[in-house]
């Protein structure tokens, strides 16, 4: 953990404004809500667990501003595949 980063200089408010805006606009533009994203996550998880063992704490599914517009970015480490 970046101890000094946490307690040292605060990020400038200009760049805080930009990153907050980018995130809120992803939701505005797609007309989504944080709740919808949570529902989507749990549905994706349901499907994936049919095929593989996952550690839910390591899951990272989120909206991001991609080069061609908003994107759903997922990083899902697999523990093992289920035997068929």
């Amino acid at each position: 953990m970046d101890f000094f980063g946490l307690f040292g200089k605060k990020q400038k408010s200009g760049s805080v404004a930009k990153s907050r805006l980018q995130l809120v606009l992803i939701q505005d533009r797609l007309d989504t809500t944080p709740e919808m994203l949570e529902m989507l996550k749990s549905d994706i998880l349901k499907v994936l667990t049919n095929y593989m063992e996952l550690d839910e704490d390591d899951l990272d599914i989120d909206m991001d501003s991609g080069a061609d517009g908003p994107a759903l970015v997922a990083n899902i480490p697999i523990k093992s595949w289920k035997k068929r």
């Binding site: 400038k12 408010s13 200009g14 760049s15 404004a17 805006l21 980018q22």
Partner: peptide
């Protein structure tokens, strides 16, 4: 003056968005 100090979004920031 505020943009220079990093305390206001730059023109590029807003145009990017």
């Amino acid at each position: 003056d505020m943009i220079k100090r990093g305390e206001m979004m730059t023109i590029d920031d807003v145009v990017d968005i």
